[in-house]
Amino acid sequence: MKQSIGERLFQIFNYTLLFLLAATMIAPLLQLLAVSFSSPIAADSKEVFLIPVEFTLDTWKHILQNEVLWRAFGVTVFITIVGTILSMLFTVLTAFPLSRKDFLLRKPIMLMMVLTMIFNAPMIPFFLTVREVGLMDSIWALIIPGLVSTFNMVIVRTFFLGIPSDLDDAARIDGCNEFRLLFQIYLQLSKPVLATIGLFYAVGYWNTFKTAVLFLRNPDLWPLQMRLRAFFTSEEELAAVDLIMGDFDFNTTTLKAATIIFATIPIVLVYPYLQKYFVKGAVLGSLKE
């Protein structure tokens, strides 16, 4: 097809603009990666531009020996695995009856759940309720109060509704009850959507922050994000680092950069899988009924 000069100019402009913007999406992380491998003197004298200057592993050695950080990492891994499994289970168990025409309370219950997407409770009554339930300073406070995401539940339900009902009849003739129907037939057919919401939940748990701010006073229970935040803001923790610094080749600038990268690596590692599924999920969730 022939293009006018104007269109060709636009194409050049468009490609340039998008490449530049796309570069800004990844450049901040690359810059911090470079800083984390640079000497503190180079980092503080503004010499580092995307490539490490005076390459050193000291910052990373220190980070990877930091027990407090690993403890927080452990908490996050725990809530990510256990939380994702529990959330998936609760979501699927809730979505399935809501997709069944045989289920008489389908409409009112669905309405009750979707309404919470519009009317969500203010922070304080939510806080007081969770405290009343006895979850203050418990690791379960990071999982249970946010167990089911209505958005994800609607995605799964929409998918279940799309499964042809001939299958049900066949299953029923074979004497298959509703639990087996869900777990042996529906879930087998829903693997892509389960992968999608599983990844949504997992990323959500990995990034858990607000619930930790609200409910955890005990620093031993802090998840990774909370620990990072403390590390960025509290001078004492940084001072403790400076005290033991001695001969080592790092400072708070390089340490902060390294902790940011540390918390990002797992996300980047699962990113290719994430990407495979999330587009589908984001679109499915937006379907109106």
């Binding site: 168990l93 009554p125 007081l128 339930v133 089911v148």
Partner: peptide, 20 residues
Amino acid sequence: LYLMILPGIIYYIIFKYIPL
């Protein structure tokens, strides 16, 4: 089906409606 949805309902009542 009622048994399946029970945990979900309890969750929504405690953590969504009671705070509301």
